[in-house]
Design a protein around this nucleic acid. Structure first.
Length: 623
DNA sequence: GAGTTTGAAACT
DNA sequence: CAGTTTCAAACTC
């Protein structure tokens, strides 16, 4: 214990060590991230986010090293140009032990001794054991609350720290201040160590690779798979621990046992009461942090994170991080995964440093009034849609009666003059002005020669004929639903050039739905446009000014005169694109995302964009 | 801190 | 590849 206290001297250096990427390692650390990191270990290890990450990055380098020569050179840690501060022993310990492994290619089952990776050149481990203070007790001592205190130190006696039994060796680092006996996992015994590495790799080419591999996404079937998606590459073989003790590698890695495992009486699975109880008992902060970090990263990356049911997580671990949840053990091989791991470290630390306070990038942009407006918008739209439906139904009923009376004397098509309405709406621009007049959904007979004014595209929604791109766009990529409605209300769709009442019935409602949908989308689009512009302006304007503007009802975007001196070519590419002349130049990520979506929507619907400029609809002709 | 339990790694 | 042994971490007292 007293030794622990001595070691506490190193605590403040954690952060420094975290950033202590020497030479080429810096690059590797930035790019080659531990793919699927064992987040718990990461947090447990004394240096929390760093040590494990670095180790893993060492094990799992990005294949950026092109040649063996390059590899050798590049992987040698270069002296830091910065003023050298004495490193703590722990810092030294973080020196990569197996640099040659960093750039190694994926090893196949066959190990080629001539491979450059076997030409082990000792890392600049400047005396891993120098500066070693007194030997410390067993590593990985944690505080009760799970706060990592010490770096792992092995206690090997028989393996000479040259086998995977040794945690240091298996982690790819030199022993440093360990309590091992006859240790050869050090600079002095580099030759022996290299031999051991070779031997180990011969036995298992993946010996130094992370055991925890993440699946990019949870399986679709698992509804309650809200927990960890990481997976032990080999799986555990526990028999007595129930996989709920650290004996179990899966548990230790804070992942659920998977199909790879061959464990007996496993309790480390989603939904396990024992496991849940364990979590609740421990209030293990580490877990929460992991969850938050992973969730945040998932959200930031936008990948698997969204596939993780937040609610479930919240239920499970919920107090600490409401709104964030998932654990996404990262993994293997995908750069994205690596990024995630990289982010995890930073996010975890930033979460810690920021006391888990999350501030949206939209903060200050999205005003309360905006939310109210949006809510009101939905209410209004809902009301109008209801009325529209009722009116249209009545009209249709009358029409169909009339048609019945006409019997089948003529081929009559019923359509909604959408195009007229669309162009009308396009000029209005705002949903509040989009009152639906009764004539909007009136049934117009369509010229038989096909010259109807059904839009610039002149296409019909009729059976067998292509629908208007606008109509298609309005369907929001949900043609199935629309077609179902349009196709055959009674289950038998009419075919042929002339429409029967049944098919008319169908596409009447189709158009009705489309009209309603268009109404709603237009409203939302306009709202978002306004929001985007406001956000954009706020970003481009000095804070105080922007704030003032945001606070006012009159949003700057509406006059379209805001200019920015920070306009960049790239942004112009994105936004101008020869079409959009937005005065706004730099958008926040959120704004960019919404802008893209919005633009896409505008393109689809063929409605004016946020600046009142007409964007041509995407049509088959164009494609 | 010593002893026990446990499961991965190593070996046969 | 399965069974056994070795080993060191995790755990208990």
């Amino acid at each position: 214990m007293e030794q622990d206290e001595k070691n506490s001297d190193f605590q403040p250096k954690k952060l420094a060590r975290q950033l202590d990427f020497t030479g080429a390692y810096r690059g590797l650390a930035n790019v080659a991230l531990p793919e699927c990191q064992d987040a718990q270990k990461q947090l447990e290890s004394e240096s929390q986010t760093q040590s494990h990450s670095q180790l893993e990055s060492r094990r799992h380098p990005e294949p950026q090293i092109k040649s063996p020569e390059h590899s050798q050179l590049q992987l040698q840690p270069q002296p830091q140009p910065q003023p050298q501060q004495p490193r703590s022993p722990l810092q030294l310990q973080q020196q990569p032990l197996l640099p040659q492994l960093q750039g190694r290619p994926q090893l196949g089952p066959m190990v080629n001794r001539s491979h450059p990776m076997y030409k082990l050149s000792p890392p600049t481990l400047q005396a891993a054991k120098q500066e070693s203070p007194t030997s410390r007790p067993r590593a990985n001592i944690e505080a009760k609350d799970g706060t990592p205190k010490k770096k792992k130190q092995c206690n090997c006696k028989s393996s000479q720290c040259l086998k995977l039994y040794c945690e240091c060796f298996s982690a790819g680092i030199y022993c440093d201040n360990c309590n091992c006996i006859s240790c050869q996992n050090n600079v002095e015994n580099e030759a022996a160590r290299q031999e051991a590495v070779v031997a180990t790799l011969e036995r298992n080419p993946f010996a130094f690779r992370p055991k925890i591999a993440c699946s990019p996404r949870r399986s679709r079937g698992s509804m309650d798979d809200s927990a960890v998606v990481g997976k032990h590459s080999k799986g555990c073989h526990c028999k007595k621990s129930g996989c709920l003790k650290k004996y179990c590698e899966c548990f230790q890695a804070s992942i659920l046992c998977s199909e790879n495992c061959k464990c007996v009486s496993c309790k480390n699975f989603e939904g396990s009461e024992e496991r849940s109880a364990l979590f609740h008992e421990d209030h293990n902060t580490t877990i929460y942090i992991q969850q938050a970090a992973n969730a945040a990263i998932s959200g930031a990356i936008g990948s698997s994170g969204y596939g993780i049911p937040l609610a479930s997580k919240k239920r499970k671990y919920g107090k600490l991080f409401s709104g964030i949840a998932a654990k996404d053990q990262s993994i293997h091989t995908s750069p994205q995964c690596q990024q995630e791991n990289n982010l995890k470290a930073s996010v975890a630390s930033s979460l810690l440093s920021s006391k888990f306070k999350y501030r949206s990038s939209l903060a200050g942009i999205l005003q309360l009034q905006d939310i109210k407006d949006l809510c009101s918008l939905f209410v209004v739209l809902s009301d109008k849609a209801t009325k529209t439906l009722a009116e249209a139904t009545i009209q249709w009923t009358e029409k169909s009666d009339k048609l019945d009376r006409q019997k089948e004397g003529e081929n009559v098509e019923i359509s909604i003059d959408l195009s007229t309405q669309e162009s009308r709406d396009g000029k209005k621009g705002h949903i509040s002005q989009n009152a639906i007049s009764d004539d909007r959904l009136s049934w117009n007979q369509v010229d038989r020669d096909g010259t109807s004014d059904s839009g610039s595209d002149g296409t019909n929604i009729d059976d067998g004929r292509p629908m208007s791109p606008r109509t298609l766009a309005l369907m929001c990529d949900e043609p199935d639903t629309i077609f179902m409605a349009a196709g055959s209300p009674d289950g038998v769709a009419g075919h042929g050039q002339n429409t029967s009442q049944k098919s008319s019935n169908g596409h009447v409602f189709t158009r009705l739905y489309a009209e309603q949908e268009r109404l709603v989308l237009t409203g939302i689009r306009d709202f978002l446009n306004r929001l985007i512009t406001c956000g954009s302006i706020q970003e481009t304007m000095p804070l105080p000014l922007a704030k003032n503007d945001m606070g006012s009802q009159q949003r700057p975007a509406e006059n379209g005169k805001v200019k920015s001196g920070s306009e960049t070519a790239s942004h112009k590419e994105v936004y101008d694109n020869g079409i959009i002349k937005s005065p706004v130049t730099q958008l926040s990520p959120e704004a960019i995302a919404v802008t893209c979506c919005n633009k896409d929507l505008s393109l689809k619907v063929g409605l004016p964009d946020g600046n009142g400029e007409k964007i041509e609809p995407i049509t088959d002709r164009e494609s």
